[in-house]
Simulated assay, not measured.
Amino acid sequence: MSKLYTKITSRLQSFIEAQKIFFVATAPNSGRINLSPKGMDSFRVLSENRVLWLNVTGSGNETAAHLLVNNRITIMFCAFEKAPNILRLYGKGKEIKEGDASWNALIQLFPETPGTRQIFDITIESAQTSCGMSIPFFEYKGERNELNTWAVEQGKEGIKKYWAAKNQESIDGLPTNIVNQK
């Protein structure tokens, strides 16, 4: 049975903190919906209605583009071990980039991560759990290091060049404003 919440309870927070993977979904007013798996130590619950997600450089920057047009965002966690559970967080998100007023305080909440691109600050409007009984069991074997290795090899300036070449627009041609990053 599903249950709707108006906040992240302590039980939901404990579930979130135990997960190794989560999924982020955003959509512009028209165009493609983006749904991406995320991992690493990149998610923080700040309060019962506020979370942060540290985003690293990737092949696209769809979330940033979508939130500029339509700030709706959904985060989904699902249990791959122990009791079945699916948790969706529904909210409004905004991008925080290096140089923004809150960057220095918020980046301190995460481990130093090569290729860090932005932080998404999400106000949670509601949360919903559902059974997850159809989700198979999977065993966590560890984090992948390829992205971190690549980012270290690029260096900060190389990453900025990559953003300028590959992360300026969504796949639907929407701007991401990443090149304005300091």
Rank of each mutant, 00 (worst) to 15 (best):
R144N: 12
T176Q: 05
I73G: 03
D172V: 14
P136H: 07
G155I: 07
W103K: 04
G93L: 05
M133Y: 15
I119Q: 01
L46T: 02
R117K: 11
E17K: 11
E17P: 02
F80Q: 11
F80W: 12
Q108S: 10
E157C: 08
F77H: 07
I122G: 00
N145W: 02
L52K: 06
P37R: 02
N85R: 10
I33W: 02
Q108W: 02
R32Q: 14
G93C: 05
R44K: 15
Q181G: 04
D172S: 08
T9Y: 06
P114N: 01
Q181H: 09
V152K: 07
K166F: 05
K20G: 03
N55T: 12
I16R: 01
A27T: 12
V51R: 01
A18R: 14
F43E: 02
E169V: 06
P114Y: 01
T6M: 06
E146G: 07
I16H: 06
I8Q: 00
L174G: 04
L174I: 04
P28D: 11
G142A: 10
I178H: 05
I159A: 13
E125K: 10
I33T: 11
A165E: 15
I135T: 15
F80H: 13
P175Y: 10
T129A: 00
N148V: 11
C131E: 06
Q128A: 13
I119G: 04
K97M: 14
T123L: 12
I107D: 02
I178L: 00
K166Q: 13
E62R: 05
F138K: 12
K160Y: 09
V45K: 01
I119E: 03
M76V: 15
V56G: 11
K166L: 00
D100E: 11
K38M: 10
G115P: 07
N71M: 03
N180C: 10
S102Q: 14
G132K: 00
F120R: 03
F138V: 04
I124L: 08
T63H: 01
K7N: 07
F120G: 00
S130T: 13
T6E: 15
T123E: 15
S134V: 10
E153M: 13
G99L: 11
E143C: 00
I171V: 14
H66L: 07
E153L: 09
S134R: 07
N145I: 14
